[in-house]
Design a protein around this nucleic acid. Structure first.
Length: 586
DNA sequence: GCCGTTTTCGGCCCGACTGTTTTCAGTCG
Protein backbone atom coordinates (compact mmCIF):
# COMPACT_ATOMS: atom_id res chain seq x y z
CA UNK A 1 0.00 0.00 0.00
CA UNK A 2 1.15 3.49 -0.83
CA UNK A 3 0.63 4.65 2.78
CA UNK A 4 3.50 2.51 4.01
CA UNK A 5 5.74 3.36 1.07
CA UNK A 6 5.30 7.05 1.75
CA UNK A 7 5.80 6.59 5.48
CA UNK A 8 9.10 4.80 4.83
CA UNK A 9 10.29 7.64 2.61
CA UNK A 10 9.37 10.22 5.23
CA UNK A 11 11.22 8.28 7.92
CA UNK A 12 14.20 8.23 5.61
CA UNK A 13 13.98 11.98 5.00
CA UNK A 14 13.74 12.50 8.77
CA UNK A 15 16.94 10.53 9.33
CA UNK A 16 18.79 12.40 6.58
CA UNK A 17 17.69 15.73 8.06
CA UNK A 18 18.85 14.64 11.50
CA UNK A 19 22.26 13.91 10.00
CA UNK A 20 22.33 17.51 8.82
CA UNK A 21 21.77 18.62 12.42
CA UNK A 22 18.21 19.68 11.81
CA UNK A 23 16.16 19.31 14.98
CA UNK A 24 12.51 19.98 14.29
CA UNK A 25 11.95 19.22 10.63
CA UNK A 26 12.78 15.53 11.21
CA UNK A 27 10.11 15.53 13.91
CA UNK A 28 7.59 16.86 11.43
CA UNK A 29 8.38 14.18 8.84
CA UNK A 30 8.23 11.44 11.45
CA UNK A 31 4.88 12.67 12.65
CA UNK A 32 3.51 12.61 9.11
CA UNK A 33 4.95 9.12 8.63
CA UNK A 34 3.21 7.85 11.76
CA UNK A 35 -0.10 9.35 10.57
CA UNK A 36 0.28 7.67 7.20
CA UNK A 37 1.03 4.23 8.49
CA UNK A 38 -1.64 4.20 11.15
CA UNK A 39 -4.55 5.76 9.30
CA UNK A 40 -7.24 3.46 8.04
CA UNK A 41 -7.95 5.27 4.77
CA UNK A 42 -6.00 4.72 1.60
CA UNK A 43 -3.90 7.76 0.78
CA UNK A 44 -4.42 7.36 -2.96
CA UNK A 45 -8.18 7.52 -2.53
CA UNK A 46 -7.99 10.56 -0.27
CA UNK A 47 -5.93 12.33 -2.88
CA UNK A 48 -8.18 11.21 -5.72
CA UNK A 49 -11.26 12.52 -3.93
CA UNK A 50 -9.99 15.77 -2.45
CA UNK A 51 -6.53 16.61 -3.80
CA UNK A 52 -4.06 18.63 -1.75
CA UNK A 53 -6.67 20.18 0.57
CA UNK A 54 -7.80 16.69 1.62
CA UNK A 55 -4.20 15.65 2.25
CA UNK A 56 -3.71 18.66 4.52
CA UNK A 57 -6.58 17.42 6.69
CA UNK A 58 -4.30 14.57 7.80
CA UNK A 59 -2.67 15.24 11.15
CA UNK A 60 0.96 16.28 10.72
CA UNK A 61 0.55 16.98 7.02
CA UNK A 62 0.84 20.60 5.92
CA UNK A 63 1.41 22.32 2.60
CA UNK A 64 4.91 21.04 2.01
CA UNK A 65 4.36 17.40 2.92
CA UNK A 66 1.04 17.34 1.05
CA UNK A 67 2.88 18.40 -2.07
CA UNK A 68 5.45 15.67 -1.52
CA UNK A 69 2.68 13.10 -1.25
CA UNK A 70 1.19 14.41 -4.49
CA UNK A 71 4.59 14.24 -6.15
CA UNK A 72 5.01 10.63 -5.09
CA UNK A 73 1.54 9.57 -6.21
CA UNK A 74 2.05 11.20 -9.59
CA UNK A 75 5.67 10.35 -10.33
CA UNK A 76 6.56 7.51 -7.96
CA UNK A 77 9.43 9.49 -6.47
CA UNK A 78 10.18 12.41 -4.20
CA UNK A 79 12.91 14.66 -5.49
CA UNK A 80 14.05 16.16 -2.23
CA UNK A 81 14.62 12.66 -0.83
CA UNK A 82 16.66 11.69 -3.85
CA UNK A 83 18.70 14.89 -3.51
CA UNK A 84 19.43 14.03 0.11
CA UNK A 85 20.50 10.56 -0.97
CA UNK A 86 22.83 11.99 -3.58
CA UNK A 87 24.39 14.25 -1.01
CA UNK A 88 25.02 11.37 1.38
CA UNK A 89 24.81 8.18 -0.68
CA UNK A 90 24.29 5.62 2.06
CA UNK A 91 21.76 2.92 2.87
CA UNK A 92 20.38 4.64 5.90
CA UNK A 93 17.54 2.21 6.61
CA UNK A 94 19.98 -0.68 6.74
CA UNK A 95 22.46 1.13 8.97
CA UNK A 96 19.95 2.62 11.35
CA UNK A 97 18.63 -0.87 12.09
CA UNK A 98 21.91 -1.61 13.85
CA UNK A 99 21.35 -1.21 17.56
CA UNK A 100 23.31 1.72 18.96
CA UNK A 101 23.71 3.49 15.63
CA UNK A 102 21.72 6.64 14.98
CA UNK A 103 21.87 9.32 12.29
CA UNK A 104 24.74 11.23 13.92
CA UNK A 105 27.10 8.30 14.25
CA UNK A 106 26.19 7.07 10.78
CA UNK A 107 27.07 10.45 9.32
CA UNK A 108 30.38 10.51 11.16
CA UNK A 109 31.23 7.01 9.95
CA UNK A 110 30.46 8.02 6.39
CA UNK A 111 32.61 11.15 6.60
CA UNK A 112 35.57 9.41 8.21
CA UNK A 113 35.48 5.91 6.73
CA UNK A 114 33.09 6.20 3.76
CA UNK A 115 30.82 3.59 5.31
CA UNK A 116 27.73 3.32 3.14
CA UNK A 117 26.04 0.09 4.10
CA UNK A 118 26.04 -2.89 6.41
CA UNK A 119 28.85 -4.60 4.51
CA UNK A 120 31.18 -1.60 4.79
CA UNK A 121 30.31 -1.34 8.45
CA UNK A 122 31.10 -4.97 9.12
CA UNK A 123 34.42 -4.76 7.29
CA UNK A 124 35.50 -1.62 9.11
CA UNK A 125 34.61 -2.92 12.54
CA UNK A 126 36.37 -6.23 11.89
CA UNK A 127 39.49 -4.29 10.89
CA UNK A 128 39.19 -2.26 14.11
CA UNK A 129 38.93 1.01 12.25
CA UNK A 130 36.01 2.24 14.30
CA UNK A 131 37.33 2.13 17.85
CA UNK A 132 40.00 4.84 17.36
CA UNK A 133 37.49 7.37 16.02
CA UNK A 134 36.64 10.37 18.19
CA UNK A 135 33.58 9.61 20.27
CA UNK A 136 33.71 5.90 19.53
CA UNK A 137 35.79 3.26 21.32
CA UNK A 138 36.35 -0.44 21.92
CA UNK A 139 32.92 -1.12 23.35
CA UNK A 140 31.08 0.74 20.64
CA UNK A 141 32.89 -1.25 17.99
CA UNK A 142 32.05 -4.51 19.70
CA UNK A 143 28.41 -3.53 20.05
CA UNK A 144 28.24 -2.67 16.38
CA UNK A 145 29.55 -6.11 15.42
CA UNK A 146 27.03 -7.78 17.67
CA UNK A 147 24.28 -5.58 16.26
CA UNK A 148 25.16 -6.69 12.74
CA UNK A 149 25.19 -10.34 13.82
CA UNK A 150 21.75 -9.94 15.36
CA UNK A 151 20.33 -8.41 12.22
CA UNK A 152 21.68 -11.29 10.19
CA UNK A 153 20.32 -14.06 12.37
CA UNK A 154 16.90 -12.70 13.25
CA UNK A 155 14.80 -10.12 11.61
CA UNK A 156 14.65 -8.15 14.81
CA UNK A 157 11.15 -9.00 15.95
CA UNK A 158 9.67 -12.10 17.52
CA UNK A 159 6.20 -13.52 17.35
CA UNK A 160 4.16 -13.00 20.49
CA UNK A 161 3.25 -16.68 20.40
CA UNK A 162 6.90 -17.72 20.28
CA UNK A 163 7.95 -15.88 23.41
CA UNK A 164 4.90 -15.44 25.63
CA UNK A 165 5.41 -18.74 27.51
CA UNK A 166 9.01 -17.81 28.39
CA UNK A 167 7.97 -14.28 29.36
CA UNK A 168 5.35 -15.64 31.73
CA UNK A 169 7.89 -18.05 33.20
CA UNK A 170 10.39 -15.27 33.94
CA UNK A 171 7.65 -13.06 35.38
CA UNK A 172 6.76 -15.93 37.70
CA UNK A 173 10.41 -16.30 38.83
CA UNK A 174 10.61 -12.58 39.60
CA UNK A 175 7.32 -12.70 41.45
CA UNK A 176 8.76 -15.30 43.81
CA UNK A 177 11.57 -12.99 44.98
CA UNK A 178 10.80 -11.64 48.42
CA UNK A 179 12.01 -8.14 47.51
CA UNK A 180 9.41 -7.90 44.73
CA UNK A 181 6.19 -6.26 45.85
CA UNK A 182 4.43 -6.04 42.51
CA UNK A 183 5.30 -7.20 39.05
CA UNK A 184 3.78 -6.73 35.65
CA UNK A 185 4.65 -7.42 32.04
CA UNK A 186 4.53 -4.06 30.26
CA UNK A 187 5.35 -2.83 26.75
CA UNK A 188 4.11 -4.42 23.57
CA UNK A 189 3.65 -7.80 25.26
CA UNK A 190 1.05 -6.28 27.57
CA UNK A 191 -0.55 -4.67 24.53
CA UNK A 192 -0.47 -8.15 22.96
CA UNK A 193 1.01 -6.97 19.70
CA UNK A 194 1.43 -9.76 17.18
CA UNK A 195 5.20 -9.23 16.99
CA UNK A 196 7.45 -8.06 19.78
CA UNK A 197 10.68 -6.08 19.56
CA UNK A 198 11.63 -6.55 23.19
CA UNK A 199 10.05 -7.48 26.49
CA UNK A 200 9.51 -5.08 29.39
CA UNK A 201 9.10 -6.15 32.99
CA UNK A 202 8.09 -3.69 35.66
CA UNK A 203 8.68 -4.33 39.34
CA UNK A 204 7.78 -2.37 42.46
CA UNK A 205 10.38 -2.65 45.19
CA UNK A 206 12.42 -0.67 47.68
CA UNK A 207 15.36 -3.05 47.38
CA UNK A 208 16.21 -3.08 43.69
CA UNK A 209 19.84 -4.22 43.89
CA UNK A 210 19.27 -7.93 44.49
CA UNK A 211 16.45 -8.07 41.96
CA UNK A 212 18.73 -6.59 39.31
CA UNK A 213 21.44 -9.10 40.17
CA UNK A 214 18.93 -11.93 39.86
CA UNK A 215 17.64 -10.62 36.55
CA UNK A 216 21.00 -10.29 34.80
CA UNK A 217 22.06 -13.73 35.99
CA UNK A 218 19.02 -15.63 34.71
CA UNK A 219 20.23 -18.87 33.10
CA UNK A 220 19.00 -17.84 29.64
CA UNK A 221 21.07 -14.62 29.54
CA UNK A 222 23.88 -14.38 27.01
CA UNK A 223 24.52 -10.64 27.05
CA UNK A 224 24.04 -7.80 29.49
CA UNK A 225 23.41 -4.62 27.56
CA UNK A 226 23.24 -2.40 30.57
CA UNK A 227 22.79 -2.65 34.27
CA UNK A 228 21.69 0.30 36.35
CA UNK A 229 19.93 0.91 39.64
CA UNK A 230 16.47 1.16 38.16
CA UNK A 231 16.88 -0.18 34.65
CA UNK A 232 18.70 -3.14 33.19
CA UNK A 233 18.70 -4.69 29.79
CA UNK A 234 19.66 -8.21 28.75
CA UNK A 235 19.60 -10.53 25.74
CA UNK A 236 18.55 -14.16 26.03
CA UNK A 237 19.94 -17.14 24.15
CA UNK A 238 16.93 -17.19 21.84
CA UNK A 239 17.75 -13.61 20.81
CA UNK A 240 15.04 -11.78 22.75
CA UNK A 241 15.96 -8.56 24.49
CA UNK A 242 14.41 -7.95 27.88
CA UNK A 243 14.29 -4.83 30.04
CA UNK A 244 13.59 -4.69 33.71
CA UNK A 245 12.62 -1.46 35.42
CA UNK A 246 12.28 -1.17 39.15
CA UNK A 247 10.32 1.66 40.77
CA UNK A 248 9.07 2.41 44.27
CA UNK A 249 5.53 1.23 44.96
CA UNK A 250 4.32 4.83 45.07
CA UNK A 251 5.16 5.23 41.37
CA UNK A 252 4.11 1.77 40.20
CA UNK A 253 0.89 2.81 38.46
CA UNK A 254 2.53 5.71 36.65
CA UNK A 255 5.43 3.52 35.59
CA UNK A 256 3.09 0.77 34.39
CA UNK A 257 1.21 3.32 32.32
CA UNK A 258 4.43 4.78 31.00
CA UNK A 259 6.17 1.52 30.11
CA UNK A 260 3.09 -0.05 28.56
CA UNK A 261 2.97 2.57 25.84
CA UNK A 262 2.44 2.80 23.02
CA UNK A 263 4.72 5.73 22.52
CA UNK A 264 2.05 7.53 20.51
CA UNK A 265 -0.54 6.93 23.22
CA UNK A 266 1.80 8.27 25.89
CA UNK A 267 2.70 11.39 23.96
CA UNK A 268 -1.00 12.16 23.53
CA UNK A 269 -1.58 11.58 27.24
CA UNK A 270 1.26 13.87 28.25
CA UNK A 271 -0.17 16.57 26.04
CA UNK A 272 -3.54 16.23 27.77
CA UNK A 273 -1.72 16.54 31.09
CA UNK A 274 -0.08 19.75 29.86
CA UNK A 275 -3.39 21.32 28.85
CA UNK A 276 -4.61 20.67 32.38
CA UNK A 277 -1.51 22.31 33.84
CA UNK A 278 -0.21 18.90 34.93
CA UNK A 279 2.91 16.92 34.17
CA UNK A 280 3.00 13.20 33.51
CA UNK A 281 6.10 11.03 33.67
CA UNK A 282 6.98 7.55 34.85
CA UNK A 283 6.93 8.68 38.48
CA UNK A 284 3.47 10.11 38.59
CA UNK A 285 1.05 12.80 37.59
CA UNK A 286 2.10 16.13 39.08
CA UNK A 287 0.61 19.56 39.66
CA UNK A 288 3.72 21.65 40.18
CA UNK A 289 5.76 19.53 42.55
CA UNK A 290 2.72 17.89 44.15
CA UNK A 291 2.03 14.34 43.06
CA UNK A 292 -1.67 13.81 42.49
CA UNK A 293 -1.54 10.22 41.21
CA UNK A 294 1.07 7.53 40.73
CA UNK A 295 0.49 4.38 42.72
CA UNK A 296 -2.44 3.21 40.65
CA UNK A 297 -2.73 3.19 36.87
CA UNK A 298 -6.50 3.68 36.86
CA UNK A 299 -6.05 6.80 38.99
CA UNK A 300 -3.76 8.37 36.36
CA UNK A 301 -6.41 8.01 33.67
CA UNK A 302 -9.12 9.23 36.01
CA UNK A 303 -7.22 12.39 36.99
CA UNK A 304 -6.66 13.09 33.30
CA UNK A 305 -10.41 12.96 32.79
CA UNK A 306 -10.33 9.62 31.02
CA UNK A 307 -11.87 6.20 31.36
CA UNK A 308 -9.25 3.55 32.02
CA UNK A 309 -8.12 2.28 28.62
CA UNK A 310 -7.36 -1.42 28.05
CA UNK A 311 -3.72 -1.94 27.10
CA UNK A 312 -4.53 -3.62 23.77
CA UNK A 313 -5.99 -0.44 22.28
CA UNK A 314 -3.42 2.08 23.55
CA UNK A 315 -2.25 3.16 20.10
CA UNK A 316 -3.58 6.72 19.88
CA UNK A 317 -6.07 5.56 17.29
CA UNK A 318 -9.05 7.39 18.73
CA UNK A 319 -9.20 5.53 22.03
CA UNK A 320 -8.28 8.66 23.99
CA UNK A 321 -11.07 10.73 22.49
CA UNK A 322 -13.55 7.92 23.21
CA UNK A 323 -12.28 7.66 26.79
CA UNK A 324 -12.80 11.40 27.25
CA UNK A 325 -16.43 10.95 26.22
CA UNK A 326 -16.75 7.92 28.47
CA UNK A 327 -17.61 5.99 25.37
CA UNK A 328 -15.04 3.19 25.04
CA UNK A 329 -16.32 -0.10 23.67
CA UNK A 330 -16.60 -2.97 26.12
CA UNK A 331 -14.02 -5.26 24.56
CA UNK A 332 -14.55 -8.98 24.19
CA UNK A 333 -12.92 -11.07 26.96
CA UNK A 334 -11.28 -14.48 27.01
CA UNK A 335 -14.13 -16.19 28.83
CA UNK A 336 -16.77 -14.87 26.43
CA UNK A 337 -15.70 -17.59 24.00
CA UNK A 338 -18.16 -20.50 23.96
CA UNK A 339 -16.63 -22.65 21.26
CA UNK A 340 -14.32 -23.02 18.31
CA UNK A 341 -15.27 -23.93 14.76
CA UNK A 342 -11.89 -24.30 13.10
CA UNK A 343 -10.15 -27.48 14.25
CA UNK A 344 -8.39 -30.10 12.17
CA UNK A 345 -8.58 -33.74 13.24
CA UNK A 346 -6.54 -36.72 12.16
CA UNK A 347 -9.09 -37.23 9.39
CA UNK A 348 -7.00 -34.68 7.49
CA UNK A 349 -3.70 -33.21 8.74
CA UNK A 350 -4.44 -32.83 12.46
CA UNK A 351 -2.78 -34.88 15.19
CA UNK A 352 -5.74 -35.92 17.30
CA UNK A 353 -8.93 -37.91 16.99
CA UNK A 354 -12.24 -36.10 17.01
CA UNK A 355 -12.99 -37.49 20.43
CA UNK A 356 -9.68 -36.22 21.87
CA UNK A 357 -10.34 -32.77 20.46
CA UNK A 358 -13.87 -32.77 21.85
CA UNK A 359 -12.65 -33.74 25.30
CA UNK A 360 -10.13 -30.90 25.22
CA UNK A 361 -12.99 -28.58 24.27
CA UNK A 362 -14.98 -29.77 27.27
CA UNK A 363 -12.02 -29.08 29.55
CA UNK A 364 -11.91 -25.54 28.20
CA UNK A 365 -15.58 -25.16 29.10
CA UNK A 366 -16.83 -24.92 25.52
CA UNK A 367 -20.47 -25.48 24.53
CA UNK A 368 -19.52 -26.61 21.05
CA UNK A 369 -16.57 -27.63 18.96
CA UNK A 370 -16.52 -27.64 15.18
CA UNK A 371 -14.43 -30.14 13.25
CA UNK A 372 -13.45 -28.51 9.99
CA UNK A 373 -10.95 -30.64 8.13
CA UNK A 374 -9.36 -29.79 4.83
CA UNK A 375 -11.11 -30.95 1.69
CA UNK A 376 -10.01 -32.88 -1.34
CA UNK A 377 -8.12 -30.24 -3.32
CA UNK A 378 -5.48 -30.15 -0.59
CA UNK A 379 -4.12 -33.62 -1.25
CA UNK A 380 -0.99 -32.86 0.71
CA UNK A 381 -3.10 -32.29 3.82
CA UNK A 382 -5.07 -35.48 3.19
CA UNK A 383 -8.15 -33.48 2.27
CA UNK A 384 -11.59 -35.14 2.58
CA UNK A 385 -13.88 -35.76 -0.40
CA UNK A 386 -17.69 -35.96 -0.38
CA UNK A 387 -17.68 -39.62 0.59
CA UNK A 388 -15.21 -39.16 3.46
CA UNK A 389 -17.20 -36.22 4.77
CA UNK A 390 -20.30 -38.40 4.91
CA UNK A 391 -18.37 -41.06 6.83
CA UNK A 392 -17.01 -38.45 9.18
CA UNK A 393 -20.53 -37.24 9.88
CA UNK A 394 -21.54 -40.70 11.05
CA UNK A 395 -18.49 -40.81 13.33
CA UNK A 396 -19.30 -37.42 14.81
CA UNK A 397 -22.92 -38.41 15.41
CA UNK A 398 -21.68 -41.49 17.24
CA UNK A 399 -19.34 -39.54 19.51
CA UNK A 400 -22.01 -36.97 20.20
CA UNK A 401 -24.35 -39.70 21.40
CA UNK A 402 -21.64 -41.54 23.30
CA UNK A 403 -20.05 -38.65 25.14
CA UNK A 404 -22.04 -35.52 24.82
CA UNK A 405 -25.52 -34.14 24.90
CA UNK A 406 -26.94 -33.92 21.41
CA UNK A 407 -28.80 -30.80 20.47
CA UNK A 408 -32.55 -30.87 21.18
CA UNK A 409 -32.26 -34.47 22.33
CA UNK A 410 -35.35 -35.81 23.91
CA UNK A 411 -33.70 -37.67 26.72
CA UNK A 412 -36.02 -40.56 27.27
CA UNK A 413 -33.12 -42.43 28.82
CA UNK A 414 -31.19 -39.76 30.70
CA UNK A 415 -28.94 -42.25 32.41
CA UNK A 416 -27.22 -43.13 29.16
CA UNK A 417 -26.20 -39.56 28.47
CA UNK A 418 -23.23 -37.79 29.85
CA UNK A 419 -24.15 -34.56 31.59
CA UNK A 420 -21.42 -32.75 29.69
CA UNK A 421 -22.94 -30.08 27.55
CA UNK A 422 -20.73 -29.86 24.55
CA UNK A 423 -21.80 -30.53 21.03
CA UNK A 424 -19.52 -31.54 18.18
CA UNK A 425 -20.45 -29.82 14.95
CA UNK A 426 -19.31 -30.91 11.54
CA UNK A 427 -17.95 -28.43 9.08
CA UNK A 428 -15.04 -28.33 6.72
CA UNK A 429 -12.41 -25.91 5.55
CA UNK A 430 -13.04 -26.10 1.86
CA UNK A 431 -10.77 -24.63 -0.78
CA UNK A 432 -11.58 -21.61 -2.85
CA UNK A 433 -10.23 -22.68 -6.22
CA UNK A 434 -8.62 -20.35 -8.73
CA UNK A 435 -11.94 -19.50 -10.36
CA UNK A 436 -13.70 -18.90 -7.03
CA UNK A 437 -15.57 -22.20 -7.02
CA UNK A 438 -15.51 -24.52 -3.99
CA UNK A 439 -13.88 -27.94 -4.24
CA UNK A 440 -16.85 -29.73 -2.63
CA UNK A 441 -20.30 -30.12 -4.19
CA UNK A 442 -23.09 -27.94 -2.84
CA UNK A 443 -25.26 -30.94 -2.01
CA UNK A 444 -22.57 -32.11 0.40
CA UNK A 445 -21.88 -28.63 1.83
CA UNK A 446 -25.61 -28.36 2.49
CA UNK A 447 -25.50 -31.28 4.89
CA UNK A 448 -22.76 -29.81 7.08
CA UNK A 449 -23.45 -27.68 10.15
CA UNK A 450 -21.23 -24.94 8.78
CA UNK A 451 -18.78 -24.32 5.95
CA UNK A 452 -15.47 -22.46 6.13
CA UNK A 453 -13.83 -21.59 2.83
CA UNK A 454 -10.28 -20.40 2.38
CA UNK A 455 -7.61 -19.75 -0.21
CA UNK A 456 -4.83 -22.34 -0.03
CA UNK A 457 -3.35 -22.12 -3.52
CA UNK A 458 -2.36 -19.66 -6.26
CA UNK A 459 -1.49 -16.90 -3.82
CA UNK A 460 0.13 -14.61 -6.32
CA UNK A 461 -2.87 -13.59 -8.37
CA UNK A 462 -3.43 -10.00 -9.46
CA UNK A 463 -5.46 -8.00 -6.95
CA UNK A 464 -8.68 -7.77 -8.98
CA UNK A 465 -8.67 -11.46 -9.79
CA UNK A 466 -8.03 -12.51 -6.19
CA UNK A 467 -10.79 -10.20 -4.99
CA UNK A 468 -13.25 -11.64 -7.51
CA UNK A 469 -12.19 -15.15 -6.53
CA UNK A 470 -13.03 -14.60 -2.87
CA UNK A 471 -16.22 -12.70 -3.66
CA UNK A 472 -17.46 -15.57 -5.77
CA UNK A 473 -16.84 -17.94 -2.88
CA UNK A 474 -18.77 -15.69 -0.50
CA UNK A 475 -21.69 -15.70 -2.91
CA UNK A 476 -21.99 -19.46 -2.60
CA UNK A 477 -25.08 -19.80 -0.36
CA UNK A 478 -23.49 -22.59 1.69
CA UNK A 479 -20.28 -20.78 2.59
CA UNK A 480 -20.59 -19.31 6.09
CA UNK A 481 -17.07 -18.26 6.98
CA UNK A 482 -13.95 -17.12 5.09
CA UNK A 483 -10.78 -18.26 6.83
CA UNK A 484 -7.52 -16.26 7.10
CA UNK A 485 -8.61 -13.68 4.55
CA UNK A 486 -5.24 -12.17 3.63
CA UNK A 487 -3.19 -15.36 3.81
CA UNK A 488 -0.24 -13.75 5.54
CA UNK A 489 2.24 -15.80 7.52
CA UNK A 490 4.07 -13.50 9.91
CA UNK A 491 7.79 -13.33 9.12
CA UNK A 492 7.32 -15.87 6.29
CA UNK A 493 4.82 -14.80 3.69
CA UNK A 494 3.29 -11.51 2.63
CA UNK A 495 -0.45 -11.04 2.43
CA UNK A 496 -1.96 -11.73 -0.93
CA UNK A 497 -3.35 -8.69 -2.62
CA UNK A 498 -7.05 -8.09 -2.17
CA UNK A 499 -9.46 -5.17 -2.28
CA UNK A 500 -10.54 -5.35 1.33
CA UNK A 501 -13.33 -2.78 0.99
CA UNK A 502 -14.94 -4.69 -1.86
CA UNK A 503 -14.76 -7.90 0.10
CA UNK A 504 -16.32 -6.20 3.13
CA UNK A 505 -19.16 -4.90 1.01
CA UNK A 506 -19.80 -8.42 -0.26
CA UNK A 507 -19.57 -9.93 3.23
CA UNK A 508 -22.19 -7.44 4.37
CA UNK A 509 -24.46 -8.28 1.47
CA UNK A 510 -24.13 -12.06 1.78
CA UNK A 511 -23.96 -12.22 5.58
CA UNK A 512 -20.59 -13.98 5.42
CA UNK A 513 -18.59 -14.24 8.63
CA UNK A 514 -14.90 -13.28 8.51
CA UNK A 515 -12.46 -15.29 10.55
CA UNK A 516 -9.96 -13.92 13.02
CA UNK A 517 -7.43 -16.73 12.78
CA UNK A 518 -5.75 -17.07 16.17
CA UNK A 519 -2.71 -19.03 15.06
CA UNK A 520 0.24 -16.89 16.22
CA UNK A 521 1.78 -17.10 12.75
CA UNK A 522 -1.36 -15.80 11.09
CA UNK A 523 -3.40 -13.46 13.33
CA UNK A 524 -5.36 -12.70 10.23
CA UNK A 525 -7.44 -10.43 10.12
CA UNK A 526 -5.10 -7.83 11.56
CA UNK A 527 -6.26 -5.24 14.09
CA UNK A 528 -6.98 -2.55 11.52
CA UNK A 529 -9.07 -4.89 9.39
CA UNK A 530 -10.97 -6.11 12.43
CA UNK A 531 -11.89 -2.56 13.30
CA UNK A 532 -13.10 -1.87 9.78
CA UNK A 533 -15.12 -5.07 9.76
CA UNK A 534 -16.71 -4.21 13.09
CA UNK A 535 -17.56 -0.71 11.91
CA UNK A 536 -19.35 -2.21 8.91
CA UNK A 537 -21.45 -4.34 11.26
CA UNK A 538 -20.06 -7.57 9.82
CA UNK A 539 -19.74 -10.53 12.17
CA UNK A 540 -16.45 -12.25 12.87
CA UNK A 541 -15.41 -15.54 14.44
CA UNK A 542 -12.25 -16.24 16.45
CA UNK A 543 -10.76 -19.58 15.43
CA UNK A 544 -7.78 -21.54 16.66
CA UNK A 545 -7.13 -23.29 13.32
CA UNK A 546 -5.68 -25.99 15.56
CA UNK A 547 -3.92 -29.07 14.24
CA UNK A 548 -3.30 -30.42 17.73
CA UNK A 549 -5.67 -30.42 20.70
CA UNK A 550 -3.28 -28.26 22.73
CA UNK A 551 -3.52 -25.62 20.03
CA UNK A 552 -7.12 -24.92 20.99
CA UNK A 553 -5.32 -22.55 23.41
CA UNK A 554 -4.32 -20.36 20.48
CA UNK A 555 -7.72 -18.79 20.97
CA UNK A 556 -6.08 -16.51 23.58
CA UNK A 557 -4.07 -14.79 20.86
CA UNK A 558 -7.17 -14.43 18.72
CA UNK A 559 -9.14 -12.79 21.50
CA UNK A 560 -6.28 -10.35 22.12
CA UNK A 561 -6.16 -9.61 18.41
CA UNK A 562 -9.92 -9.00 18.42
CA UNK A 563 -9.51 -6.64 21.36
CA UNK A 564 -6.79 -4.79 19.49
CA UNK A 565 -9.36 -4.32 16.74
CA UNK A 566 -11.91 -2.95 19.25
CA UNK A 567 -14.21 -5.98 18.85
CA UNK A 568 -16.98 -6.50 21.38
CA UNK A 569 -18.71 -9.68 22.41
CA UNK A 570 -21.61 -9.04 20.05
CA UNK A 571 -19.28 -8.80 17.04
CA UNK A 572 -17.92 -12.31 17.50
CA UNK A 573 -20.25 -15.22 16.74
CA UNK A 574 -18.47 -17.83 18.82
CA UNK A 575 -19.49 -15.94 21.92
CA UNK A 576 -23.04 -17.02 21.05
CA UNK A 577 -24.70 -19.94 22.78
CA UNK A 578 -25.00 -23.09 20.67
CA UNK A 579 -28.61 -22.42 19.84
CA UNK A 580 -28.03 -18.80 18.89
CA UNK A 581 -25.05 -19.76 16.77
CA UNK A 582 -26.95 -22.44 14.86
CA UNK A 583 -29.86 -20.06 14.28
CA UNK A 584 -27.40 -17.46 13.04
CA UNK A 585 -25.70 -19.91 10.68
CA UNK A 586 -29.08 -20.88 9.26
C1' DG B 1 7.82 21.43 8.69
C1' DC B 2 3.54 21.74 11.44
C1' DC B 3 0.33 23.84 14.46
C1' DG B 4 -3.11 27.05 17.28
C1' DT B 5 -9.83 27.71 23.00
C1' DT B 6 -2.54 31.13 25.68
C1' DT B 7 0.07 31.67 20.38
C1' DT B 8 0.05 33.14 12.80
C1' DC B 9 5.44 33.09 16.03
C1' DG B 10 7.59 30.22 18.86
C1' DG B 11 7.23 26.27 20.47
C1' DC B 12 7.82 20.98 19.34
C1' DC B 13 7.64 14.63 25.32
C1' DC B 14 11.23 13.44 28.26
C1' DG B 15 14.19 10.65 31.42
C1' DA B 16 17.83 6.69 31.82
C1' DC B 17 21.89 4.82 30.46
C1' DT B 18 26.28 4.16 27.84
C1' DG B 19 30.55 5.30 26.39
C1' DT B 20 32.87 8.52 25.67
C1' DT B 21 34.20 12.41 27.75
C1' DT B 22 36.45 15.88 31.52
C1' DT B 23 30.68 17.76 31.57
C1' DC B 24 27.93 15.55 27.71
C1' DA B 25 26.17 13.85 23.04
C1' DG B 26 23.88 10.13 21.16
C1' DT B 27 20.63 6.59 21.43
C1' DC B 28 16.68 4.30 23.15
C1' DG B 29 12.07 3.56 24.50
Amino acid sequence: MKNQELANIFYEIADYLTMEDEVFRPLAFKKAAVSLETMKENIEEIYKKGGIPALKEISGVGKNIAEKIEEYLKTGRIKCCEDLKKKTPIDIQELIAVEGLGPKKIKFLYQKLKIKNLKDLEKASKKHEIAPLFGFGEKTEKNILQGIEFLKTSKGRFLLGEILPLVKEIAEKLKNLKQVKKISIAGSVRRMKETIGDVDFLVASNKPAQIMDFFVSLPEVIKIWSKGKTKSSIRLKNGTDMDLRIVPEKSYGAALQYFTGSKEHNIALRKIAMTKGLKLNEYGLFRGSVKIAGENEKEIYKKLGLQWIPAEIRENQGEIEMAQKNNLPKLIEQNDIKGDLHCHSNWSDGENTIEEIAKQAVSQGYEYIGISDHTKFLKIANGLDEKKLAQQKKEIDKINVKCFTPLDAKLSNGARMSNVKCRILQGCEANILKDGSIDIKNETLKKLDFVIAGVHSSFKMPKEQMTERIIKAMQNPFVDIISHLTGRLLKHREEYEIDFDKILACAKETGTILEINANPYRLDLNAQNIRKTKEMGIKMIISSDSHHKEQLNFIEFGVSQARRGWAEKKDIVNTFSLKKLLDFLK
